[in-house]
Design a protein around this nucleic acid. Structure first.
Lengths: 127, 127
DNA sequence: CTAACTGTATTAATACATATAATACACTTA
DNA sequence: TAAGTGTATTATATGTATTAATACAGTTAG
């Protein structure tokens, strides 16, 4: 389900967040579907449960999953996943990246084509 | 020239990088213009020179400035600031952010309008 | 040439972030 | 009740960030 990359300098919990987010965005994990328990995923990845818990806590704060005591963690249905604060955060990041790309002379045309591709594939081709 | 925000949880050198990058992108700092020396900026911000040096080193690696021993640090002219590796990095980040925005039901139309604004203002309205 | 400025590098000390480990407690379900 | 879930706490080890104090090398103005 998830593979960690030790060569990646980012924290493990960041990698876990990213991979899970991708599975949710791509629709591999569907609304209200249960994701692995903290202990289960920790055992599978041979890392500490606390690290998984941190990743899950962050994903919950971002509105992508919800957790139920005694039951598990589940994928937040889209209607509730819409999170204005998170959206604003993403737009700000977007703003910075695009401003830098513009400075580097990336044309509006190239950028539009790139974005069109993402809209068509819905994020499939992230490594 | 630059103001640090202690409430910001990011490292100081990240804040410095971001603010300088913005000044360069917006054209406030022009090609081959000298930026403050590590000691000068450190004194002005009342932080350690090593922290400034780390920020400058990163900006040099990203191709935004160049440094000359004994003289100072300068804004890299655009012709040389174009950095394919950095561009690819930015495109990958872009891909992730947009995929998440699409998941959050942000329309292509809204996104296009946002990007058009950035192209027109060239990054002016980042806080 | 010298003094005062530049960038660069190193080492040490401290604080914070990350990750592991071992527990404990509360809730859910078979 | 037993075994699974999330959640919280404390301790420990390691990595990252930051400050601090120096040192060395190149540039420039006097």
């Amino acid at each position: 389900m998830i593979q960690l990359d030790l060569k990646d300098r980012r924290p493990l919990y960041e990698q876990i967040k990213e991979k899970l987010k991708l599975l949710i965005i791509k629709g591999v994990l569907k609304a209200d579907e249960k994701i692995p328990s903290v202990r289960e995923l920790a055992q599978y990845l041979t890392i500490n449960p606390n690290t998984i818990q941190k990743a899950y806590k962050d994903l919950e704060a971002e509105g992508l999953i919800y957790s139920v005591r005694g039951k598990g963690n589940f994928v937040m249905p889209l209607e509730h996943a819409i999170n204005p604060a998170r959206e604003e955060e993403l737009m700000k990041e977007l703003q910075k990246i695009i401003a830098e790309l513009i400075y580097m002379r990336v044309s509006r045309k190239k950028l539009s084509a790139f974005i069109d591709d993402i809209y068509e594939n819905k994020g499939d081709e992230v490594r």
